[in-house]
Design a binder for these strands. Structure first.
Lengths: 138, 138
DNA sequence: CTTGACCCTGTAGTTGCTACAGGGTGCATA
DNA sequence: TATGCACCCTGTAGCAACTACAGGGTCAAG
């Protein structure tokens, strides 16, 4: 199959497929006489693996490792588990950070009395103690 | 104050301060004879505003708008509210996305029976239907 | 035989910094 | 006085993970 077909089959942009190849995630396929990339089912499988992992938020580095591990069929999968668990921890951390932001933003927005900027609690909270000594000098 | 002092006072790196200047967030300060940047309290105020907004996850574009609005003291703060609410919506969306990822990852990791890669549910789930026709050629 | 959809390479843009390289300045100390 | 060190300057390149051209080539249909 040609790159456009592969891309469509995996909901990926053509440029992204080429990018994955250059990044070493997808092996360079055979070429036609016209120098077109020619993919087989293995590539489709590989690319859909990559996309799923990406959808789950794994970094390209992590995907590279997962792909390498996936090829070592006989080995124990502890390393796979470690990568996934590490990623889960990162995701949980990010959720915690974002949740804190969310609460702070809600507080901020809730305090807005819809008057002028001069007494807007949002602006006030962002730029707290206004030192009266100076205005922004140019 | 010199750039290093300003940076320390706002827990910012010196390079980041210069970056904000180039990005139009922080107005270029006066210079000393030696061409060193010389900041006043207004800059300190401005930079701490920027840092707080960034900590809350506002994009640089949003910060630019907030800064512009903060200077229009007499105007209604509806626009401020709109930016903050829009950002809150984005944060909530991101949390939802990450929560979905988290659940999927937990499911994945929970299904791992700690055997070999060959029957690892994590790998299996990532690369689902293995088409037996081909192995990754090259 | 030309139009349009596809393919190719290579490079530059995005966001928000961070990290040099290759220089100058200012102050304390030996 | 020299000299070392911390700080400052500019400008550019790098990170992730793509995305979007520019400037070409190929192929099948009408």
């Amino acid at each position: 199959m040609k790159i456009g077909e592969l891309a469509k089959a995996t909901a990926t942009k053509v440029e992204t497929v080429r990018f994955y190849e250059k990044a070493g995630l997808l092996s360079p396929p055979a070429r036609t006489d016209a120098n077109y990339r020619s993919y087989g089912p293995a590539h489709l499988q590989r690319l859909s693996f990559i996309r799923r992992a990406r959808d789950l938020g794994f970094s390209l580095d992590a995907v590279r490792e997962l792909l390498a591990l996936a090829d070592e069929r006989g080995k124990p999968c502890a390393a796979v588990d470690a990568i996934a668990s590490g990623h889960l921890a990162e995701v949980e951390l990010k959720i915690a950070d974002l949740s804190a932001m969310r609460e702070e933003l809600r507080r901020l927005i809730g305090s807005c009395r819809h008057n002028t900027v001069a007494d807007c609690k949002i602006i006030e909270t962002l730029g707290p103690r206004v030192l009266e000594t100076t205005r922004m000098s140019a």
